[in-house]
Design a protein around this nucleic acid. Structure first.
Lengths: 230, 230
DNA sequence: CGATCATTTGACACCGGTCAAGTTTTGTGG
DNA sequence: CCACAAAACTTGACCGGTGTCAAATGATCG
């Protein structure tokens, strides 16, 4: 999966910028492989993280093992803030990632940082609102369509320009999530995700040259299957 | 529905406290009846609101009318912040409410306000994570149980003390939402909510002296049906 | 090339949605 | 306070979309 389009995939300099107000603030940059755990739900929330590059998912587990992926974050996004002294989710990379971290207490003492967080958290909250609609009210087909559209840049949003006329309206999406992770994000089972993709293939809506490459043949058509248009 | 337990139901003085940094900041306090709309999704997001008293829901609609209630807010909670210049949800009172508002641009210019928002938004985000688990992974029975437990103060949380032994572990909940609103919050239909409550009644888990009064006969037992314990 | 894991596909069950009555509650006017 | 209408809620019958379980197929990596 490529970094999510839409906002701040630029240089990740927020921690650097805002943590300097203290005296000996240490910023550490680490490289993670794909599917490495950064922290677990319930761990002491003593660090905040910023994604320089890569993809990270936040998820929660129920005691019987059911999992819900609650957020998918990309370059420029920040995570690890917590309202208690424990993380409320686990964090795991979905793709190789470069991630900076610093001490949460220090970051939070910086006024500028908290102001920056205001913007970041608002975005995250609005994304969660949208995702709640998906989880609570959309069919399996609509969920997968919405998911695929997330990775099509500059399309499907409020200011969607629509397809260029008399040109194929295609877009190639490269997934960096397994079917299980997609299912856990969309509130479905792995089998349902697979079946929906197969149906889309059968109907000529997508082509799948590899399991993790999906060519959307008609972006505008796909967009109208998300339940969000018309 | 009573104000949600758990955090900041005290005096709502945040707007007052933090908006004073500008010179002629105007704070307006209004009284709303039950089921009055405060703003609609897509309206210009020029005000921020603080609940002094009452209950407010935020919801989103799909074009075909499907509705998802994404947040339920009580005294001390703040809403109307937006990352764009349009509200991403509609806001409507669930109970008679006293609500303060001020100009968003003015509030956001206040450093202290943004810092305060950091804490507020973190809480809201964590609530949304929890709600995503409910919407994505819980059965109808678990959803309704979880919903009812929201209104039982000091129980079911991480530090749950459990029931007092040799005493009935009861709790009376007064709902301020219609079945339709509960359904739209839990991602169910009105009929399913009704059926689950009837089943709980049949099993002696609850007593319903009125449609909006639910006496939980065994809080600890109810808590174990939320899917969150063992 | 074989072992292992991920994905797809099939058969079937069942939870929760849909549609359609009933029933209870609420609100209004006399 | 009652009569009536309207709204909210409950209940039943039925069905369809997803989940479950199992097997087959395809991908990946020594």
């Amino acid at each position: 999966m490529d970094a999510l389009p839409g906002r701040n995939n630029g240089v990740a300099d927020e921690l650097l910028q805002y943590s300097r107000s203290g005296d000996d603030v240490k910023i550490t940059e680490s490289v993670f492989d794909s599917h490495e755990t950064i922290f677990f739900e319930g761990d002491p929330s003593d660090r905040v993280y910023e994604i320089v590059d890569g993809v990270v998912m936040l998820y929660k587990l129920l005691p019987d093992g059911r999992r819900q992926v609650v957020e998918i974050l990309g370059a420029g996004d920040i995570f690890g803030m917590a309202s208690s002294d424990l993380y409320d989710t686990s964090a795991e990379t979905l793709a190789p990632a470069t991630i900076r971290h610093t001490v949460r207490r220090q970051a939070e003492q910086s006024e500028g940082w908290q102001q920056h967080m205001y913007t970041k958290l608002l975005h995250q909250l609005e994304d969660m609102h949208e995702h709640a609609v998906l989880l609570g009210r959309k069919s399996a087909f609509e969920r997968v369509s919405t998911f695929l559209m997330k990775f099509v840049i500059d399309r499907g949003g409020v200011g969607c320009v629509g397809p260029k006329l008399d040109a194929p309206d295609e877009s190639l999406v490269t997934l960096k999530m397994t079917r299980q992770e997609i299912a856990d994000y969309l509130g479905l089972t792995i089998e349902t995700v697979s079946r929906v993709l197969s149906t889309m293939k059968k109907r000529g809506l997508i082509v799948m040259p590899k399991q993790d490459r999906i060519l959307i043949k008609n972006v505008c058509g796909m967009c109208h299957m998300t339940g969000m248009h018309e």
